[in-house]
Amino acid sequence: MIRFSKLSVFFTGFFGLWLQAQQTSGDSLTSKHDSIIRNPSSNKPAEKKAQDIFNLQNSKKFAQYLFKTGQYSYAAEEFQRVIFLNPQDNDTKYQLVETYIQLHNIPKAESYFNQFFPLFDTLPVKFQKQSVRLDVYSENYEKAIKKLTRSKLDSIDKQTWYLGLSILEKRWKEAGEYYQAHVSNPDPVYHQFGNVVLRRLGAKTKSPFLAGTLSAVVPGLGKVYTENYGDALMAFLFTGINIWQAYRGFSKDGIKSVHGWIFASLGAAFYLGNIFGSVKAAKRHNQKIDDDATQEVKAVFDYRF
């Protein structure tokens, strides 16, 4: 117990010293904190550097800081200024395009890319990759594949990207065959894509025609087939109650019953709507299986490539 208290006194003593040091040089705290958000090289006395903060180098620094802190629309402005000051700066052009991708303004990013780099074949790999990515974001997969075959990517990358693009194009069978043909590819991402393809090939799809037919026979049955059980129950009840009410109206007042006609038309609308909805539900079911596959590939294109 005694030993422990002595130790704690010892350490609190050190802590006190440290605290004192912090207090006596209050500015050291300032600089430590500010180095995260301010230009680190500007902590020099003012008279030594009467610098132009709108010149090329400083604008570039500031723009990169804005990009890193996620202030993209402000960063885009600054990158544009840097490019205006130095039209040969290809890296900044690359970053400007990236900024517009971050702002989800793909058409603008594409138009800038085409303006900056009109000749695809002469570009370095980094820029070619960006070009293909832009086509992926704007869902021009055919164009992307054409560019990929012309590009200077190494064969391993080329295989991975090609597999990813054929998944995005939803050519499942072809993608499966391609994957089996190049299993020796050492890239883990390639095998991740391969798993996506195999999973999609093993999944069971629903037939829209069958769903519609089933719903035409018994209202709601098509939705049981597409595994939307709650919707099936509601569709059956909606159609059933309306038609039953119409039947009651007609049997009481004959063919001139207003009550009957109102509920008959409601029942008919729900009956037709349910057939329509069952076809749509089957399509949606298939769409979801496809989306699950393509979503994973799109995420890889977003964060890895």
Partner: peptide
Amino acid sequence: KYYQRAYFFASKEQV
């Protein structure tokens, strides 16, 4: 916007 830019490049005394 302008203050942000000046703040980024400011020296210790100006901060």
